[in-house]
Structures are given as structure tokens and as C-alpha cells.
Amino acid sequence: MRLPPPRGPITEALFRALEGPPGAARIDAAGPDDEDRQPALFALDDEDTQLALFACYELHYQGFDGVDDRWEWDPGLLGFRAALEEGFERSLAAAVPRPADPGPAGVRAALVALTCTDEEPLLSLFLQREASLENFREFVTHRSIYHLKEADPHTWAIPRLSGGPKAALVEIQSDEYGGGRRERMHSELFRATMRGLGLDDAYGAHLHRVPGVTLAISNAMSLFGLHRRWLGALLGHLAALEMTSSVPNRRYATGLRRLGAGSRTVGFFDEHVVADAVHEQIAANDMCGGFAAAFPAYTGDILYGAACATELERRWAEHVMGCWQRGTGSLWTEPVPA
């Protein structure tokens, strides 16, 4: 994966530095001088800051072609990232009210309440009933940012857990990684979906196309995964993903079959209908419930992580459906200079 084109002064400064050797240049994380613009600068859909934060996090995953691996732990880069994270955490806190703490015994019920809604998810219904192949290509392009590294952000939690919660997470992640069979890894199944839709299935191939609201979803996972203080939020985040997966994935599979897609193209979604119905029980009861019982002080963090997952997903779906309803594309296009 190569560095994408910058989207503003922050990514310009970051990418310019990453093209050189670590420690050779100071990365200026400062935003506009006008303090009134600071909240907008770190908005959850801001193109410049979300892309910059994503790029900083990517150094802990597979990195970028031509970028020295030593940048991963460069003190200047970490200071730059910390400034971005501070703004991102403030934006999350403003957008996601912290749920009431029900105590360890109430974690399961609270997670169910957070992930169940009376509102019909318009995006999944649209993809099931009306979407064109081009709509599905856009949808899969958005999803490729996470699904080509599926499970990786949550795996950071494994060495930070012990006992029952650790065993529960390993059980979930083992399925995500195909039980040791490459062709069954969820990331590989998603690659088959991309190929079936005529899309480039290379890791990070579409980073330059996805908007900030999509990047924010992955950034939240990496934020929670890379900071041990957010361990409870990471577990709640994973539980929310598992508990809201089966029904939408069934609809996606139905929509693709309606359009004539074959079993290999639909296989990723079929897999999640079955697997996540099991995973949601393990995640809510054994993983989150067990962790809350062992560490009651983290119960609130578990629910906050779940709430962040559902809110960021809602904002992303609202963006995509809003674009389609207006007859426009939902992917990033560079603004035309004035």
C-alpha cells in the first residue's frame, strides 16, 4: 500500500515527513490558528485528520511502501499521533454519551439494549431489495478498509486478558482467522467478494477513495486496541459488531444473489450470518460478562465501546444512504480548487 494523496495541511505535513528518514523532520500537528475552527478540525468526518490518524495507525499494521518501518516508534510521530488522538477522543465523547453503568451483572442486558433498535436499518434493506451492482461495489469498497484486516484491531486485546475472557476472545478470533486455514480467513473471503464484483482486492488499494466517516470506524478500533487503558471499550466494541452482524449480512447476501452473484462472491456474507450468531453469545456473556465480573470498574468502558461502534456505523450508513438518495456517489472525490 502506498501513501494516498493528502487531503489538507495535516496529511501534507505527515506524508512529507514519512517520505524521509525517521527523526529528520519535525511533524507539525497544529491546526488552523482560529480556535473557533478547532472542533470542526477534529470532527468524526473530517477528511484531513481522519486520514492522518489512519496513516499513523497503519504503521502498526502492514505499513506503507517506501516508508521506513522505524517510523512506527519514532518519538516525533508518536507525539503527532497523540495530538490527533486527543482531538478524536474529544469528538467521540461529544458524539457518544457514556451509557449508564449497570454493574457487571447487567452487562449482557445493557449490550442487548444498545445494539437493538426499533428503527429499520435502511442501508441493509436497500442493498437487499433495490441496490444495483454499482451500489454494491461502493459498499464493498468502503468495507474493504476494515475487512481486509478483519479481526486484527481486536487481536491486540489477547495478551492483555487472562482466564475466561481471554479464552472467549481467542475462540472468536480463531474463527475470524479461518481456524488456521487461509482460504477460510474472513479477510480472504472478503477478497473473493471483491474479485467477484470486479474490484481490486489488494490490501489498502482503495484507501484513497474512502471518506473520513469511513476511516473513523477503523480509527476507533485502532485507538481502543493500541491503548491498554481502553481495553474494556475494545471488548465492548467487538461485542457490538458481533451482536449487530447476522441480520444485515443475511440481507447483503440476499441482495447479491438477487443481482446474480455466485456462491464465492456471496460467501463472506453467508459466513457471517452463521458465525456471528454464535460469536455474539460468546462476546456478550463469556468475554464481556467475564471481564466485567473480574474488573467491575471497566463495566462502563465496555458499554462505551459498544456505543461508539453503533454510533460510528450509524453515521457512516447515513452518509452512504444520503449520497445515494441524492443520486451521488458516496466515495471520496478530491474537491475542485476554487
Rank of each mutant, 00 (worst) to 15 (best):
residue 3 L to M: 05
residue 3 L to A: 03
residue 4 P to M: 02
residue 7 R to F: 05
residue 8 G to I: 01
residue 11 T to L: 02
residue 13 A to T: 04
residue 21 P to Y: 07
residue 22 P to C: 05
residue 22 P to Y: 01
residue 23 G to K: 01
residue 25 A to H: 09
residue 29 A to V: 06
residue 37 R to I: 06
residue 37 R to K: 11
residue 38 Q to H: 15
residue 40 A to N: 03
residue 50 Q to P: 00
residue 52 A to P: 07
residue 55 A to V: 15
residue 59 L to N: 05
residue 67 V to Q: 05
residue 68 D to S: 06
residue 74 D to C: 11
residue 74 D to I: 00
residue 76 G to L: 01
residue 92 L to V: 10
residue 93 A to M: 03
residue 101 D to K: 09
residue 108 R to E: 15
residue 110 A to W: 10
residue 112 V to C: 13
residue 112 V to D: 15
residue 112 V to Y: 14
residue 118 D to Y: 12
residue 118 D to E: 15
residue 120 E to C: 15
residue 126 F to D: 14
residue 129 R to M: 01
residue 139 F to Q: 06
residue 141 T to S: 03
residue 143 R to Q: 14
residue 143 R to C: 07
residue 150 E to N: 10
residue 168 A to Y: 02
residue 174 S to N: 15
residue 174 S to A: 11
residue 180 G to Q: 03
residue 181 R to P: 00
residue 184 R to A: 13
residue 184 R to L: 15
residue 186 H to S: 08
residue 188 E to W: 05
residue 190 F to I: 05
residue 192 A to N: 10
residue 193 T to F: 04
residue 193 T to M: 04
residue 194 M to Q: 09
residue 196 G to A: 09
residue 201 D to Y: 08
residue 205 A to W: 11
residue 215 L to W: 04
residue 224 F to P: 01
residue 227 H to I: 00
residue 236 G to M: 04
residue 240 A to T: 05
residue 243 M to C: 12
residue 247 V to M: 10
residue 249 N to H: 15
residue 249 N to V: 02
residue 252 Y to R: 10
residue 252 Y to G: 04
residue 252 Y to A: 03
residue 254 T to Q: 14
residue 260 G to T: 06
residue 261 A to N: 09
residue 261 A to L: 09
residue 262 G to V: 04
residue 265 T to P: 04
residue 266 V to S: 08
residue 268 F to S: 10
residue 268 F to T: 04
residue 268 F to H: 13
residue 274 V to N: 09
residue 278 V to W: 10
residue 285 N to R: 15
residue 287 M to I: 04
residue 288 C to E: 11
residue 298 Y to W: 12
residue 301 D to N: 06
residue 304 Y to F: 15
residue 307 A to G: 07
residue 309 A to M: 13
residue 320 V to A: 12
residue 323 C to N: 03
residue 327 G to K: 09
residue 327 G to E: 09
residue 332 W to N: 01
residue 336 V to I: 13
